[in-house]
Amino acid sequence: MSVNGPAPALPDVVNRYLTAHHIRDKESALAAFHEGATVTDDGSTYTGRAAIGQWLGEAASEYTYTTELLGAESPDENHHVVTNRLEGDFPGGRVDLRFRFTLRAGLIEDLTIAP
């Protein structure tokens, strides 16, 4: 898996999550979330660190792919959108995904991943 790197204008917690997710460091990625945070990915929602940790473990091992950062925007200080292109051995082989982050008190409160 390769990546161009996180956008420097994003908050530290978003960059830390993206970097940890990229290198498949589940514990560091999980540390970026509030205890009661939610993640919505591929039609399923995971609530709380235990469920998010399980999702991180499954998501990291299911497919092999590369990631290319296409862009990032921050409508306000608590909402950030990162667009990545994934290419790999998953159905379809290529997809542009938006990672929509909502932050609270310096941690991720909600992450929605969708085209």
Rank of each mutant, 00 (worst) to 15 (best):
G5V: 06
A7L: 06
A7H: 11
A7N: 12
L10Q: 11
P11N: 02
D12G: 11
D12N: 12
V13H: 09
N15G: 15
N15K: 15
N15A: 14
R16E: 08
Y17D: 08
A20M: 07
A20Q: 07
A20R: 04
H21Y: 15
H21E: 14
H22C: 12
I23D: 07
I23A: 02
D25K: 07
K26Q: 14
E27T: 05
A29H: 03
L30S: 10
A31E: 13
A32V: 01
A32F: 01
A32N: 04
F33N: 08
E35F: 04
G36I: 10
A37W: 03
T38K: 11
T38C: 08
D41R: 00
G43T: 00
G43F: 02
G43C: 02
S44P: 06
Y46G: 06
Y46Q: 07
T47V: 14
T47E: 14
T47G: 08
G48D: 05
G48Y: 08
R49G: 01
R49F: 01
R49K: 15
R49I: 02
A51D: 12
L56Y: 03
L56S: 04
G57V: 08
E58R: 13
A59M: 03
A59T: 05
A59F: 02
A59E: 03
A59G: 01
A60K: 11
A60Y: 13
S61Y: 04
E62I: 14
Y65W: 15
T66R: 00
T67L: 06
E68F: 01
L69Q: 10
L69R: 05
L70G: 06
L70D: 05
E73A: 14
S74Y: 09
D76V: 10
N78P: 03
H79K: 11
H79Y: 03
H80T: 09
H80R: 07
V81N: 03
V81C: 05
V81Y: 01
V81K: 08
V82T: 03
V82C: 01
T83P: 00
N84F: 02
N84Y: 01
R85E: 04
L86S: 01
E87T: 15
G88D: 05
G88Y: 00
G88I: 00
D89K: 10
D89F: 09
G93W: 01
G93N: 07
G93S: 07
V95Q: 11
V95P: 05
V95N: 06
D96F: 01
L97P: 02
L97V: 13
L97K: 06
R100L: 12
R100T: 11
R100S: 12
R100W: 05
F101I: 06
F101K: 06
F101D: 04
F101A: 07
T102E: 15
A105P: 09
A105D: 15
L107A: 14
I108G: 07
E109K: 11
D110Q: 13
D110K: 12
L111H: 00
L111F: 02
T112W: 09
